[in-house]
Computed example of a mutant assay.
Amino acid sequence: MADHIRIRRAEGVWTVRSGGAVLAESSNALELSEDGYPAIIYFPRGDIGMAFLERTDKVTTCPHKGQANYYSIMNRSATIENGAWTYENPTEAVAEIKDHVAFYATDEVTVERI
């Protein structure tokens, strides 16, 4: 793994909420810490209501994690464009985040430990 990236089990139960709905809840989330950035919680796909997510065409590349694909979050009151992302084929250094999705925490999306 890159020296500046650390992945560990996120302690406790984590949730994602948007538009009054619970999009994800997991006791199996991962916390990815990368020097210079806030820690990000990655949720296993099996713990996410994937019906709330719609794949977009957005793709970005990180030299340390690989190619990220994005989802818009669809809730009853809004669509949050590209509000979540995943590394479907991450680099070997961060292989643990495969089959996980992360969410941007905003005024419309909360990611928190409960």
Rank of each mutant, 00 (worst) to 15 (best):
A24W: 00
I5A: 02
G83K: 09
I48D: 00
A39V: 08
V13A: 06
G46S: 08
P44R: 01
S18K: 06
P63T: 11
A95V: 01
G20D: 05
E112A: 13
I40L: 08
D3Q: 11
Y37W: 12
V94N: 01
E54M: 11
E34N: 14
R76S: 11
W85T: 03
S77L: 10
G36R: 13
K98G: 04
D3R: 06
A93C: 05
R9V: 03
F103R: 06
K98V: 07
E11D: 11
V13S: 10
S77C: 08
T86H: 12
R9W: 04
R113P: 03
A51N: 08
R113H: 01
D99Q: 12
L53W: 12
M74H: 15
I97Y: 00
A29F: 06
G20Y: 09
Y37M: 00
S72G: 06
T86S: 15
A51P: 05
R6Q: 15
R9T: 10
I80Y: 14
I80L: 10
W14A: 03
W85P: 05
Y42F: 10
I80M: 05
T15A: 14
R45N: 11
T86I: 13
D3V: 11
L53M: 05
Y37N: 12
F43G: 11
A10L: 03
V16C: 06
L23A: 05
A102E: 00
H100N: 10
A10S: 10
I41P: 03
D47A: 02
E96F: 00
N69Y: 11
E108D: 05
A102Y: 07
K58Y: 04
M50A: 05
T86G: 09
S18P: 02
K58N: 14
P38C: 03
